[in-house]
């Protein structure tokens, strides 16, 4: 290979490569690494909006965070939301993938339909489901009435609001989980099933001993990505509940957002952003670690 190039050709190649990479690298540092570093810096300061001045205050913001009951509550709500959403979304994603893995027109249509929400904006998904679950003019309560069942508060009920938000986001996101599972399913060699069937394995055994374990990599991928998404829930809360009723849907990103952009508490909000970022990385690492251990068994 190298004989093909003279030194000047090499220099010309590196120069071209430099200019081809430059725009993306500028974006990377200007709009990613620099703001991240700045988030960390701001979290150690007190920012005055009116003067635009920063005063260094050390760990004060983090100290405040430790004593902030609303932070604790929003973390708890976020965790509950994650616990409702992620297992359900994974189970439903796998189930849908198994349904549409069978080739045919039905499967293609079903797959397309389940992916519609993935390309529908979260604002629209929130609004339309918010109206469906509306306690006065919603379709769901109308159906309940027709069936002679009691009307529900849904988003206005402090016990139901968070599960309803989870249902809405599952509806939105399950299509992507489905296609990841579908790709995983199609990669499992058919011979495994035939061999097991010859040995007399039933359908449940095939599922339990072949499908589930061979999808391990897919489980990990879907788990980690959907966990991160669940911890960042924001749009349906902002559009539908604004953290209510009585703080039942106050979640971490919504809390940070409101501290910063409604109450101008930028510095404190950045400290919470840092906490969130560290938490998310820790959770991802933890999930990768435990799933890898399972792999070794």
């Amino acid at each position: 290979m190298t004989v093909l190039f003279s030194n000047s050709r090499n220099a010309q190649r590196y120069r071209a490569a430099f200019f081809l990479s430059l725009p993306a690298l500028i974006g990377l540092f200007l709009f990613h690494y620099w703001p991240i570093a700045d988030t960390v810096r701001l979290s150690f300061t007190d920012y005055k909006v009116f003067t635009g001045e920063f005063t260094f205050t050390g760990l004060k913001n983090y100290d405040l965070a430790l004593k902030d009951p609303l932070l604790l509550l929003s973390l708890k709500n976020t965790a509950v939301f994650f616990l409702i959403k992620v297992p359900l979304q994974m189970a439903l994603g796998l189930m849908l993938a198994m349904l549409v893995a069978k080739p045919g027109r039905d499967s293609t249509l079903l797959r397309t339909l389940v992916l519609f929400p993935a390309v529908t904006s979260m604002v629209v998904a929130s609004i339309v489901w918010g109206m469906m679950f509306h306690s006065d003019i919603g379709i769901v309560n109308s159906l309940l009435e027709s069936l002679g069942l009691p009307q529900q508060g849904f988003l206005r009920d402090k016990h139901q609001a968070l599960p309803v938000l989870a249902a809405i986001t599952i509806w939105k996101d399950v299509g992507l989980s489905m296609i990841f599972y579908l790709a995983g399913l199609l990669a499992i060699p058919g011979e495994y099933y035939e061999a097991a069937r010859i040995d007399g394995a039933g359908r449940w055994q095939l599922f339990r001993n072949i499908t589930l374990p061979l999808l391990n990599r897919t489980h990990v991928f879907v788990l980690v990505t959907s966990t991160i998404a669940a911890f960042k829930i924001f749009v349906p809360v902002e559009v539908l509940t604004d953290g209510g009723p009585s703080n039942a849907t106050r979640v971490i990103v919504h809390y940070i957002f409101h501290l910063a952009f409604r109450f101008n508490r930028f510095s404190y909000a950045t400290a919470l952003s840092v906490i969130l970022a560290v938490l998310l990385i820790a959770i991802s690492v933890f999930q990768l670690r435990i799933t890898r251990d399972e792999d070794d068994d």
């Binding site: 990377l28 703001p35 991240i36 988030t39 911890f231 924001f234 950045t270 840092v274 990385i281």
Partner: peptide, 21 residues
């Protein structure tokens, strides 16, 4: 790796400095 690492940090964590910038 430096490029891929950006995927691990939630963009929500840089909104405030980005806005100030």
């Amino acid at each position: 790796l430096v490029i891929l690492a950006t995927l691990t940090i939630a963009f929500e964590a840089k909104l405030i400095p980005l806005f100030l910038t």
